[in-house]
C-alpha cells in the first residue's frame, strides 16, 4: 500500500461517513424531510449488525439485516411524525434519537449499556476474512461505491424527481395524483437503510461500540457535512465528507494531548456548522434552502 496506516484509517472513516452523509442528504436535501434522528439509524444499524455477527451470522446477512432493521425504524418515524412540520418535526426526530440513545444505554441485557460491545468480528465474506485495514479500505470503498451509485440512480430517476417535487410543494404534487406519504416513507426507509449499512461498517471496523458514538456529537458532524456540501447535492456531500473528516487531522500536528484533541475537533465541527449557516447557508454545491 502506498499510503500510511494512519491515512488508511482516515480513508476508511471517510468512506463510511460518505454513505452516512449521502443517505441523510437523500432525506433532508432531496425529500425535504427534516430528520435530526439520522444518527439513531446509524446506531441501530451498528448494534444490530454487531450483535448478529457475534451470534454467528454471516457478515453480509448481518449488514443487510442491520440496514433493513434501521429502515423499519425509518418507516415508524415517518408514520409517527407525519403531521408535524418545521422545527417541531426537527425536534421530534431529535427526540427520537434521544429515545434510541437512552434505550441503547438501558437495555443492558441486549446492548450491555454504557459498557458497550467489544470484540465485534471483522467481516468475513464467502470464507474470506477482511483482516487488515488495507483490506478493509478496499471493502468499504466497494460498499460505499455501490451505495452511492444506488442513491445517485434514485435521485436522478423519475422517482427522485418526485422526491424533490415533494420538498418544493407537496400539495401541488398530491393534486397531480402522487401519494406524498408513500414517497416520504420510501425515501426515509432508503435513507435509514444506508445509515444502517454505514453503522454496520463502522461497528465491524472499530470492533467496539457504545451508545456515545451515536449521539449529538455525531449528529453535529453529519449535519455539518451535509450542510457544508449543500442540500440536494450528492457531489457536495462526498466532497464535504472528505474535507471535514480530513482537515481536522491537521490538528494532530499541534501535539495536543489526546484528552483535548477530541473536544477541539468537536468544537471545530460545531464552529464550521455555525459559520456555514451564517455565511453560506446553501453550502458549497447546494441550490436549495433549508426550510
Amino acid at each position: 500500500m502506498i499510503i500510511s496506516a494512519y491515512q488508511t484509517h482516515i480513508f476508511i472513516l471517510i468512506f463510511i461517513y460518505i454513505i452516512l452523509a449521502v443517505s441523510l442528504n437523500l432525506a433532508l436535501g432531496y425529500t425535504g424531510l427534516l430528520n435530526l434522528g439520522h444518527v439513531a439509524f446509524y446506531g441501530i444499524g451498528a448494534y444490530t449488525s454487531a450483535l448478529l455477527a457475534i451470534e454467528g451470522m454471516p457478515y453480509l446477512a448481518a449488514m443487510i439485516i442491520a440496514g433493513l432493521f434501521a429502515s423499519v425504524f425509518g418507516y415508524l418515524l415517518v408514520t409517527a411524525t407525519d403531521r408535524l412540520k418545521g422545527d417541531y418535526l426537527a425536534m421530534a426526530t431529535l427526540g427520537f434519537s434521544f429515545v434510541v440513545y437512552s434505550l441503547l444505554l438501558n437495555l443492558r441485557e441486549i446492548t450491555r449499556g454504557a459498557m458497550g460491545i467489544p470484540g465485534i468480528p471483522k467481516p468475513s465474506i464467502l470464507g474470506l476474512t477482511v483482516r487488515t485495514n488495507d483490506q478493509y479500505l478496499i471493502f468499504v470503498l466497494l460498499i460505499c461505491a455501490i451505495s452511492v451509485f444506488i442513491m445517485y440512480r434514485i435521485v436522478k430517476s423519475p422517482f427522485g424527481k418526485l422526491l424533490e417535487a415533494n420538498r418544493d410543494n407537496a400539495v401541488c404534487l398530491r393534486v397531480l395524483g402522487k401519494n406524498t406519504f408513500g414517497l416520504k416513507y420510501k425515501a426515509m426507509m432508503i435513507s435509514a437503510f444506508f445509515a444502517g449499512i454505514s453503522g454496520s461498517l463502522y461497528a465491524h471496523y472499530i470492533t467496539f461500540i457504545d451508545p456515545t458514538s451515536f449521539y449529538i456529537s455525531e449528529l453535529i458532524l453529519i449535519l455539518t457535512i451535509v450542510i457544508v456540501g449543500g442540500l440536494a447535492s450528492i457531489k457536495g456531500s462526498i466532497v464535504a465528507t472528505a474535507v471535514i473528516i480530513y482537515v481536522p487531522e491537521i490538528l494532530r500536528t499541534l501535539d495536543l494531548p489526546s484528552s483535548v484533541l477530541g473536544p477541539v475537533r468537536q468544537a471545530l465541527y460545531a464552529a464550521i456548522l455555525i459559520a456555514i449557516l451564517m455565511l453560506r447557508p446553501r453550502g458549497i454545491f447546494g441550490k436549495v434552502d433549508l426550510e
Binding site: 444506488i150 434514485i154 423519475p158 422517482f159 427522485g160 424527481k161 418526485l162 402522487k178 401519494n179 420510501k186
Partner: peptide
C-alpha cells in the same frame, strides 16, 4: 414514477 424499484 412512484414505483421505486422499477425506476432505479
Amino acid at each position: 414514477d412512484e414505483k421505486l424499484l422499477s425506476n432505479i
